[in-house]
Design a protein around this nucleic acid. Structure first.
Lengths: 330, 330
DNA sequence: ATGAAAGCGCTAACAA
DNA sequence: TTGTTAGCGCTTTCAT
């Protein structure tokens, strides 16, 4: 910048003002300075700017992966979320700082915040970090979380109606005469736990003769899910439907079932959660609960920026929709 | 930091050294300072640090979208690439700065570089930005590009063997008695152009009686592809095979064909490119050319860091593999 | 309308 | 081994 100042024969402060579009600096001079900067390929150094302004024009997006440690950043749902977040954030002229946190150290969030690397933080998935988030929320407003709403929570969440979606899915299975419905997934984090609760709620009002709830833990990786299903089958306990905590789990479950000679939906009906693009194209196509990823991402970013500007915002629960396909037909 | 210094009764520079793990500072004192920092929830400000060090510990990942402007960041291939890049970059203790560039202004790269926002840049897809990249390469070594290798190129690329893959795909179609093979896609950018060239090469050695090459431009969005195929069919010119420039195009082509009453593979065989997860699950499942996304991402990051450290690196062409499935069976 | 000067939080060369 | 000091590139208050 001092180069530009020298070339323009003015003081750096004038260049700074000119490039910031300040009305203080004379119009003609401003044009000249802008022109000069363009010629010289000069752009203001955002690092120095950030240091001075204490604003980074950056948003951090964090994905804490704990029990799902093996899960790479390739889960279709996460990854779609990322794409839409990038879209929404860059649209506002902010940069996006993407960070994956494995086996969170309980200080990861506090450190990220304290570092001042960004003006706001989006956390995708509560994982097991509810407490961490609670603590941060007190002193750090510009924080939004994709996940389930939890009673007494102090941070702002955006998330799908997990219990409602799960309940709808299980009701659908019951309505189509399935009586031994297994929940496939590890209900450790709030989101999956809520789906599990929806599952329980639906079963509570199930017709007599319905088998009691049964959980088969399966992590969000395809392999883990296949394994779990196979073991479940070999355990010999009969079931005629699976409600999977996610589409990725559901799809690999279908594969595992086929491998064990069980037909979907004839022998076992399967319902997933997410409605990832793949879901419509598997054989059989997957009945699932659709989440509105794009709307979710937009809402997250919208709320985040309102919080950055000091506004208080309430959490948002987005409606979901049961998409009935072949794996659990009507 | 000055707070910590005061509390520890030492000068800031000592704190700085201690926190940097410098052997200069007495071990006991260092422990004490580290402890203090932890208690106070202090972490060094990376912005100030960056300004001082002229290193940001950040890598920029840029996706220039030009003709595909409408295309959001949801193309499965890009998105998988992103996930793996995030993985590889964070593994090295760097942050990832994600940027999407629409309708590039020809200065986007120069500005990004000049801004000093990051220590290196990964560009995903050359799009039509070959010239821009050429110019940047001269003065900015830490730049790697996912895309096709172009004769005379000065920047470092990592990319699949596009011509080879395309050739294998088309040879496969020829071997299975297809004689009127259409290339479906817009060969504007280098990658698709290379796939097109592979297509031409295979046709050049085709048996007599094979129809001449024919291109039906289709953008990378599903809708555009469907439309193109429908028009192509209605043009009345017969064809018995499609080689699509990407899986997304191929899949929507299959849909369009079905919509027009043409059976795949009976009437028309279809081969795609990428082998996105969906490809194995469509009906019929998609014969396609598999790219190694994960290996590509790892190689990109590996080369980038070698370049950041001043090493010169050669471009890399990754092998591809024809995956034969139902849409173009053996 | 412009310049001078301070300072954002940090690191490193130099001094002690 | 530790402290002093300068300065990274910018913005902004204050003075002119």
């Amino acid at each position: 910048m001092s180069d530009i100042a020298r070339l323009a024969g003015v003081h750096v402060s004038t260049v700074s003002r000119a490039l910031a579009g300040s009305p203080l600096v004379e119009a003609g001079k401003r044009k000249r300075i802008e022109q000069l900067a363009r010629e010289q390929g000069y752009v203001v150094n955002p690092v120095a700017r950030s240091l001075r302004l204490k604003r980074t024009q950056m948003v951090s997006v964090v994905i804490p992966l704990q029990h799902e440690a093996g899960q790479p950043l390739t889960d279709p749902f996460f990854v779609a979320m990322l794409g839409h977040l990038a879209e929404a954030i860059t649209q506002r002229g902010y940069g996006m700082h993407l960070q994956k946190v494995v086996l969170p150290t309980h200080e990861w969030l506090a450190e990220l915040i304290a570092s001042g690397r960004s003006d706001g933080v989006v956390v995708i998935g509560q994982s097991t970090e509810h407490e961490t988030l609670q603590q941060a929320a007190d002193s750090y407003p510009p924080l939004v979380v994709w996940g389930g709403r939890i009673p007494g929570q102090k941070y702002c969440t955006v998330g799908s109606d997990n219990p409602g979606g799960a309940e709808a899915a299980v009701r659908h299975l019951l309505k189509t005469r399935r009586r031994r419905i297994v929940f496939l997934g590890d209900p450790t984090g709030p989101e999956l736990r809520q789906r599990y609760e929806g599952y329980l709620r639906a079963l509570r009002e199930a017709p007599r003769g319905t088998a009691p709830p049964r959980v088969v833990p399966a992590h969000l990786t395809p392999d883990a899910a296949s394994l779990a299903v196979r073991e479940c089958i070999r355990a010999g306990e009969p079931f005629d439907a699976l409600f999977a905590a996610s589409d990725v789990i559901a799809i690999s479950a279908i594969r595992a079932l086929a491998g064990e000679g069980l037909a979907v939906p004839r022998d076992v009906a399967v319902v997933g959660f997410d409605d990832i693009p793949l879901a419509a194209h598997t054989t059989p196509s997957l009945t699932t609960v659709r989440q509105d990823v794009e709307g979710g991402a937009r809402t997250l970013v919208d709320l985040l920026f309102r919080r950055i500007e000091g506004e208080e915002t309430e959490s948002v629960v987005l409606p979901v929709q049961l998409i009935v396909r072949e794996s659990a037909p009507a």
